[in-house]
Design a binder for these strands. Sequence first.
DNA 1: GACCTATATGTGTCTAGACATCTAATGTAA
DNA 2: TTACATTAGATGTCTAGACACATATAGGTC
Lengths: 150, 150
Amino acid sequence: MGKIEEAIQQREFKDPFNKLVVNLLYTHSYLVAAQATLFKPNDISPEQYNVLRILRGQKGAPITVSSIQERMLNKMSNASRLVEKLKNKGLVERSECSKDRRQVDILITEKGMELLCLVEKSVEDFNQKIVHLTEDEAIQLNDLLDKLRG
Amino acid sequence: MGKIEEAIQQREFKDPFNKLVVNLLYTHSYLVAAQATLFKPNDISPEQYNVLRILRGQKGAPITVSSIQERMLNKMSNASRLVEKLKNKGLVERSECSKDRRQVDILITEKGMELLCLVEKSVEDFNQKIVHLTEDEAIQLNDLLDKLRG
DNA sequence: GACCTATATGTGTCTAGACATCTAATGTAA
DNA sequence: TTACATTAGATGTCTAGACACATATAGGTC
């Protein structure tokens, strides 16, 4: 039942490239829908989770909004507003950057770290389960995706 | 420069499965951003385009809102509102279903068909170009994605 | 018929993506 | 220094995804 043709009831595609684009869109939706069950009880969105992971990667050093934006999975998303929502939940802190007053330094709080660790564990276990591939296949798929983007 | 680690500046992943989930989210964003340049001048969203393709697949037979929903790439999207927007643009027609007055029959209009054909051509050409893979690799990637979803 | 349940669709709300635009601060060059 | 362009960030708007919920109709049971 895995085939994309059956999943969306489309018989044919123009070529494997066009089928692939549709397949990627569909698989993305599959992943996001599956992950939603994990994030919802923790009152955090996948995007906010991603920002928290970027902040932890700084290991205590502050990072600006635009640097967060650059490292996000979706470059078009709005880091400024995501940070604001995290701040309202007490998961990050904002402070004016003295060197350049246009910039804002963002730091993850203790509360943010705790939530991140909690969610991360369940996300990591979950990701292993929803990907029905062998480790070799997963590596192969990673390489193909890297190559796809050029 | 294709590697996901460089693209989002993350050094390591827990395992290939977790890397793969991130890679898929990132690649999805890459595709959507690239396609946006195609859809915007035609004043139609990728999701609305997808609905038009489903309607054309009916070859003149009407289809209900819930059937559209089932065939959409994103099962969680709101077919009812997408259809309304297409109707406002004159691209589809809605008519009450006489057999079951709860249902609504949707048909693509001539104008809808014309727009679809116009956009489809450029989308198909474009999809070939942004997928930097050989045909064999694209087939392989399709198979892996189908298997991933189980 | 009344009553209950299931189904089809519409609507409301929150979040995020995809922009355009605004303001404040900075850098640069005349 | 003034003038201008650039940059960082915030904000506004539209679209869509992710639900919960409301409404109307259908089907079945008593």
